[in-house]
Design a protein around this nucleic acid. Structure first.
Lengths: 258, 258
DNA sequence: AGTCGCAACTCGTAAGGACGAGTGACGACA
DNA sequence: TGTCGTCACTCGTCCTTACGAGTTGCGACT
């Protein structure tokens, strides 16, 4: 029944009408939308037009469609998991915000070479050797999955016996190793977001229209020398990142690309 | 000509074939895909199927479609703008990473009340009065637009004459005011990402399948009392956030929802 | 030679039909 | 009583056809 106005493509008018019905409370979060057949009658348009409108709302992340059942208004809770990107030092051992994450499998260690993106961040030329350590974590409280990758230059590992023997050590342990070797550590971190690649959609169990939040942490040693690169990826609808900032005297911060 | 295999819906097979052709280098970034008509011939499917496949690649952010011309493989440069989320203090004045941003219009000041999301972050009950100051910035080097919102509790503004008179002061000036009033300032910041609302798509000039990166900074005074909330929103394909981390002794970090 | 309009290409919107596939409830049968 | 099959409903896929709208280049006319 609700009237549809003149301007613009039909399917956008229908999408806007449904969106308004949702925000006005006619279809509260979690509730099902009318079936396609009912929407056809209600707005007097063809099925492709209704489906086109629904596709638009899906791309906005406003609804979830379940085959055989209905379309449901998506609940938009705040991200349930707050990942604290801090580093704490206590009596020579380091702790990061992630303390109780499960590791789904043993870390997978592989060899890689520095690329256009990772190279400069680590102060390397293109084509230098690296260890790449991949982990898949799960936060036990929320079930959120987190992809973690560590890039450790071979040249750095070679300087520390324990690292060369066990490159898959936890990052916190690597911090401790570097610190005992005389490095005064600082970290810089950049945060990006993007749509997932198909394989990331699968491993992170991402719903429609859900971006990835991605962060790159670089561990700097003495003279701001980059030693270690860590990447974190998580579903943006479940995870957010938290930082603490303190006023500092002037200094430059290195930008990181990826 | 390329053969299409059995499994799964036709349009997904076509989408996968095109995706492979892109990643294999047959269609490098910036180059146009074959026209719909050509893809119909190439894969021996109907136009809706081709369009459905193209829609899938759009949703992945892999291609951009231009009406009347063609579909182009999207270039995926690293975000051109790095927003440094740091605070620097020098002789009583504060500086943040954003120094050369243009303000497109005068800040728009409005009154608001604390909500379910902003209230707790500011230590307020629901329904308390706030100033809301909205700004639209443009980074001159890259043309990137940034939405900035400041939430200043009336109760805080009332404690400082200059703030009550001019709630639209720059955040750095507010920091300085609070500091001279005896507060030792610290900040916590949370970062999220999500798909844009329709109006954000417009004001931030967002392409298809481009998320928003969003950060909430809370200024804490003495006894960790929350005084000020700032929100930043930008297109995730153009902007990334940068933080500096230093090892700290144990302490808890307040999570922020929005 | 310059300008303007049309033609031919592109993608966008819309309708209609047909069938496949997942879900849930009901009822018949064991 | 319990199991299982059918049926009616949902959304998913795929086709054909038609026309609208933006872009570009060619060619005719001035």
């Amino acid at each position: 029944m609700p009237g549809i106005e003149r301007p613009g493509p039909l399917y956008k008018q229908v999408a806007a009408a449904i969106r308004d019905a949702i925000t006005s409370g006619e279809f509260p979060p979690g509730s099902p939308l009318p079936s396609e057949t009912q929407l056809i009658k209600r707005y007097q348009v063809s099925r492709p037009t209704v489906r086109n409108a629904i596709a638009a709302l899906r791309a906005e992340g406003l609804i979830d469609v379940v085959h055989g059942k209905a379309s449901y208004v998506r609940r938009r809770p705040a991200p349930a998991l707050t990942i604290e990107r801090t580093v704490t030092r206590k009596a020579g051992t380091y702790t990061t915000g992630q303390t109780d994450w499960q590791e789904n499998e043993a870390p997978s260690v592989s060899r890689a070479t520095s690329t256009e993106t990772t190279g400069p961040a680590l102060g390397l030329d293109e084509g230098e050797d690296l260890f790449a350590i991949d982990r898949l974590h799960t936060d036990p409280a929320t079930g959120t999955r987190i992809l973690h990758r560590t890039l450790l230059p071979l040249a750095v590992a070679a300087d520390h016996n324990e690292l060369a023997e066990n490159p898959a050590a936890a990052p916190e342990q690597i911090y401790a190793l570097l610190a005992t070797a005389g490095h005064k550590l600082t970290w810089t971190e950049t945060v990006r977001a993007r749509m997932p690649l198909p394989d990331e959609r699968a491993t992170l169990e991402l719903p429609d229209a859900t971006p990835i939040i991605e962060t790159t942490r670089i561990t700097h040693g003495n003279d701001d020398q980059p030693l270690l690169l860590e990447e974190l990826r998580a579903a943006a609808d479940r995870a957010q990142l938290a930082y603490r900032i303190t006023a500092d005297s002037p200094r430059t911060l290195r930008a990181v690309r990826s």
